[in-house]
Deep mutational scan, measured.
Amino acid sequence: KEYCRTLFAYEGTNEDELTFKEGEIIHLISKETGEAGWWRGELNGKEGVFPDNFAVQINEL
């Protein structure tokens, strides 16, 4: 499994977007979303897309 840590808080504006606080760990599902600048991940049981410049991939939890 791949993970990323959020660098900033983000408020999702669409139903398919994740909302998160700074410093949260998102399970990274895919970097290929069909839309440049967006990754797909899962946080707190919800799957959605989020801007990749708001997070950095990490090697271990």
Rank of each mutant, 00 (worst) to 15 (best):
G41I: 00
E22V: 10
G37S: 02
N59E: 13
E32N: 15
R5W: 03
P51T: 01
A55R: 00
F8I: 11
L18K: 02
R40E: 04
E22K: 15
S30M: 05
A36M: 10
F8H: 11
T6P: 04
A9N: 14
T6E: 03
K46W: 02
A36I: 10
L28A: 01
G12C: 07
P51F: 03
N53C: 11
I25T: 10
E17N: 02
L61R: 13
D52G: 15
G34P: 10
Q57G: 12
L61E: 14
Y10S: 04
I26T: 04
E17K: 03
G41L: 02
V56Y: 07
Q57R: 10
H27V: 13
K21G: 13
G41S: 02
F20W: 00
N44A: 11
S30R: 06
L7K: 10
L7F: 02
F8A: 14
V49S: 08
F8V: 14
H27A: 14
K1V: 07
G37H: 08
T6W: 00
L61M: 14
C4V: 07
C4Y: 14
G48K: 02
F50R: 04
S30L: 01
K31V: 08
E24T: 08
A36D: 12
G41T: 03
A36Y: 07
W39G: 04
G37P: 01
W38V: 09
G48T: 00
K46C: 13
E11A: 09
Q57H: 13
V56R: 10
F8N: 13
T13Y: 09
E15F: 06
E24V: 08
Y3F: 14
K21H: 11
K1Q: 07
W38Y: 13
E15Y: 09
F54S: 15
S30I: 02
E11I: 10
Q57L: 13
I29P: 05
N59A: 11
E17Y: 06
K1Y: 03
G45N: 07
F8C: 13
L28D: 01
G34M: 06
F20V: 04
K21N: 14
I29D: 03
S30V: 02
E60S: 11
E60G: 14
F8G: 14
H27N: 10
G23F: 01
L61T: 15
R40T: 04
E2V: 09
R5K: 15
V56A: 12
F50S: 01
E35V: 15
H27D: 07
G37Y: 00
G23L: 00
E32I: 10
L28N: 04
G12I: 00
R40Y: 10
N53M: 10
N59G: 13
I58N: 07
I25S: 06
Y10M: 03
I58H: 09
Y10V: 04
F8D: 08
K46Y: 07
K31E: 11
R5G: 01
T19W: 04
C4A: 04
A36S: 11
I25D: 08
K31W: 01
E2T: 11
P51Y: 01
Y10W: 09
L61A: 15
L43E: 02
I58V: 14
F50V: 03
E35R: 15
Y10F: 10
D16A: 12
T6N: 00
E60A: 13
T33C: 10
T6K: 04
F54M: 12
L7R: 08
S30G: 08
K31H: 05
H27S: 12
G45W: 01
E42A: 14
K31Y: 03
E47I: 15
E60W: 09
Y3R: 06
H27C: 14
Y10E: 04
G48I: 02
I26Y: 00
W39C: 05
Q57A: 13
F20L: 02
E17R: 05
V56L: 09
R5D: 02
I26H: 05
P51R: 13
G34W: 02
V49A: 08
V56I: 08
E22H: 02
N14V: 06
K31I: 03
I26C: 06
D52K: 13
S30E: 10
E47L: 09
G34F: 05
T33V: 11
W38F: 11
E35F: 10
N44T: 05
T6L: 01
T19R: 08
S30N: 11
L7Q: 09
F50Y: 02
E60H: 15
F50Q: 02
N59S: 14
L43G: 02
